[in-house]
């Protein structure tokens, strides 16, 4: 299931894992069912090195410049950014709500920490999401095992360190089974 579709180019700096960028946008007036979610989510592409990451990222709109109900997802290659995926179904996510104006910087710091293996939780990280909404933006990072408290605590502490958030920022952990209800 984790077949790699891309490899680092000559002289490039390999990443620990391959990743895939995805983009989704809610069509106004449509129900947010699982099927329409899967239909609305589009793969942007996969990368295996630092240099390949920058080639995608440099051409992508920054989250703070997106309009409407849009999300960027960055997941390890082979993991779909949805709770039904085998890697996610026993997992959960840390959620941070951001006032408008912070999303671009926080998203960049979050994904650089993930790509650089700053979380130190073995294979636990699945991916990250930035969700652009009307009044606020949300960033989240997903891990495989929601019941593993040592892992979730370590992810939280790393987030605090790498995001350099205002001290009053609230961080919330949600299991995917809670999110479905």
């Amino acid at each position: 299931a984790k077949k790699k579709t891309v490899v680092p180019g000559a002289g490039e700096h390999p990443l620990q894992y391959n990743y895939t960028f995805w983009y989704s946008r809610r069509t106004p007036g449509r129900p947010a069912s699982s099927q329409s979610y899967e239909q609305n989510i589009k793969q942007i592409g996969s990368f295996a090195s630092v240099e390949q990451f920058w080639r995608f990222y440099s051409h992508m709109t920054r989250p703070g410049d997106l309009t409407g109900h849009s999300d960027f997802h960055l997941f390890k290659e082979g993991i779909k950014p949805m709770w039904e995926d085998d890697a996610n179904k026993s997992g959960g996510k840390w959620i941070i709500r951001l006032r408008k104006g912070l999303a671009s910087r926080c998203w960049e710091n979050l994904i650089l920490a993930m790509l650089g293996e700053q979380f130190m939780v073995g294979e636990e990280i699945c991916g990250a999401v930035v969700s652009v909404r009307f009044q606020e933006d949300i960033i989240s990072i997903w891990n495989k095992t929601a019941s593993d408290q040592a892992t979730t605590a370590r992810i939280r502490d790393t987030l605090r360190r790498v995001l350099n958030l205002p001290p009053n920022t609230i961080m919330e952990y949600k299991t995917h089974t809670d999110s479905i209800k």
Binding site: E12, R55, N109, G116, E117, V162
Partner: peptide
Amino acid sequence: GTRIIYDRKFLLDRRNSPIAQ
């Protein structure tokens, strides 16, 4: 095996490397 760890500055410094262009 060995884990490939990069800090933020290292990643940002690769942003404008000739290979990335």
